[in-house]
Write a protein that binds this DNA or RNA. Structure first.
Lengths: 346, 346
DNA sequence: GTTAGCACTCGATGCAAATGAGTGCTAACA
DNA sequence: TGTTAGCACTCATTTGCATCGAGTGCTAAC
């Protein structure tokens, strides 16, 4: 037995219907559709076959049938066609993303808001992973007799800084010499290669300032890491609007899974090697999300994929629509980010 | 009819019981308590009086009685005694707050986590409101031929910076002169008085750099404002463990009220004039939180109250315990913050 | 291969009776 | 006069039971 033309059509109809209504689909419902000229009995036979093939499931004997993960997978891979966004939706997305800001974090939140607002699912955005970005410039600035600022500029135009205390004898000239040494060693290194140990190798040249610089660079490193970890989430409560989460315990589990630090980060990080990814039900690594689907996309800075974002919702997800939205946001965000950096560098 | 000794005792017993169990309290339950030597009938009479006085309510005829807002208010003002924290709780709080970090934001999150974890309610923390803090130092640093960094240092030891583009002819000396001018004007001004217009008054002396500086200061100002607005929230889903929120719609409303930007900020901001504040049920400004209670406290930097934090939960809240916890966190946070700043300034 | 027909399944809905926690009131008591 | 035992009453909740109806599977006829 195989998936012939008609079985395919029936399966698609069931999936479409179920995605819209969340109600198990019965044979009579389908046979009544104008574009089906087959009796309910025939459809029942086909549905029985489809169940045997693993594409349909029955919650209980006297209910209709619902698509299995396998069915969604087939749908996503072979049947589904890209939905078309309305002009209003495009405008809304652009309005979110191109609201001027001078903080990267705000841009990320805007993206998350756009995503959750348009899709009505829960949105998450992984901020740019700066590890692959290169160090362009490091500078030590004397702020007062005892304090200095270590400023780091990357080729992505993003800066980080950290305050440090210096021995009170130090002059601006001393610091400049130190800066120069640092630059020589660290320039063009990737952030994740900014090995603190290298400072040690500078030996006597920086003398007693070694410890000082070492701890400053460590602080800088941890700052870069921490902001890279902070996944922006929006629309957590959207899930409560879907009937599959009207059960309190399910809803609670879902919300707690969202909040458990690292969970989303891991997922987005893993997904950030793929232009798009769709993970359905049990395909998810996290067992507590095994009745969810997750769809993600990456965004770029220049040509480099540098972060990812996506939505998480019931397996009964409007995949085609979500994919189109992700695609459009991918485009817009890449653009907005380029804008952002350029504006920042002005 | 007035609140005599015995009525008071009965009321307190009802409140205590209801806070623990969330089940309406009946007369027999009370009369069975070892420390009550009164019959259930007598208690019924007293309860009837208490209801007439507005301290008790009956969900329906054949149920026990539950405390009214008025009762909680009386309890909080006159009856309640500070609970004692266990040594383990103190240790847990300190472990949260004194985990070393070099980011203010992280300290805020640690506080929120401590609060929600220990109280089991939803916690919120308003980060330091830096408006009242004074400008200590402003410095312009040349980063490359075309870019400079504007660094602002406050007397609280907190720094902010913003990147700006400069005409390529500028030298480090030029920038230093500009810095000096800025310092003369802005030093010791409060952040919220860093009026951008003053720059205009500098007239010809800064010449064509006026626009440049103006926009840089504006960016700085907006950055300061935005980070001041970001309330740190933790334990959103704790509320789902309380039976009064087992109704889906209630839970959804609550969670959405939490997420609605500005809501919590307003509350915490308003509460930050009072050492402690307790707002019960309808006393809350936000109508969507009229079946919640909110308890807050302020924390200080030096002697200045500079931010606030608190919990939000059902009106049936363990007020005495919460207050003790807030008190202890208030102490610890003030201390941790001082540490933080000092360490930062090292 | 398709379809009409029919028995069967099983969750959902509705209803009535039973349950029981709790009250209010009255009358007796100390 | 305050306290208490006793009792009738209320009402949400539980339980059992009959019914409904959407949906299936199977069989026999087309």
């Amino acid at each position: 037995m195989e998936l012939d033309q008609r079985k395919m059509r029936i399966l698609q109809a069931i999936i479409d219907d179920y995605i819209m209504t969340a109600v198990p689909v019965g044979s009579r419902t389908l046979s009544k559709r104008a574009d089906f000229n087959i009796s309910s009995a025939t459809i029942r036979n086909e549905m029985s076959d489809l169940e045997e093939l693993g594409y349909l499931e029955q919650p209980h004997t006297s209910a209709g049938r619902i698509p299995s993960s396998k069915a969604y997978r087939l749908y996503v891979n072979n049947i589904m066609q890209r939905a078309q966004l309305t002009e209003a939706e495009r405008r809304a997305i652009r309005a979110y993303l191109f609201a001027r800001t001078d903080q990267l974090e705000v841009l990320m939140r805007q993206t998350a808001n756009a995503l959750s607002d348009i899709t009505k699912y829960t949105a998450m955005v992984l901020p740019p992973q700066l590890n692959t970005v290169r160090i362009k410039h490091i500078q030590l600035v004397l702020l007062s007799k005892e304090r200095a600022l270590l400023v780091l500029v990357t080729d992505a135009g993003i800066i980080r800084d950290v305050m440090l205390r210096v021995p009170s004898g130090m002059t601006a000239g001393d610091l400049e010499r130190l800066s120069n040494r640092l630059n020589k060693i660290l320039r063009d290194k990737r952030l994740d290669q900014m090995a603190v140990e290298e400072i040690a190798s500078m030996g006597v040249e920086i003398g007693e300032q070694r410890l000082l610089l070492q701890s400053a660079l460590e602080a800088l490193e941890s700052q870069v890491k921490k902001t890279a970890l902070k996944v922006e989430v929006s629309g957590e409560t959207n899930i409560l609007n879907y009937p599959e989460y009207s059960d309190m315990d399910k809803a609670k589990n879902f919300l707690q899974a969202l909040n458990s630090e690292g969970n989303l980060y891991q997922m987005l990080k893993r997904a950030s090697t793929l232009e798009f990814s769709i993970s359905i039900g049990q395909e998810n690594e996290a067992p507590e999300l095994s009745d969810c689907s997750i769809v993600t996309a990456t965004y770029r800075l220049g040509n480099e994929p540098i972060g990812s974002f996506g939505v998480i919702g019931p397996t009964r997800m409007h995949y085609s629509r979500v994919l189109s939205i992700l695609e459009y946001i991918q485009l817009s965000l890449t653009e907005a980010l380029t804008d952002f950096i350029e504006h920042d560098q002005e």
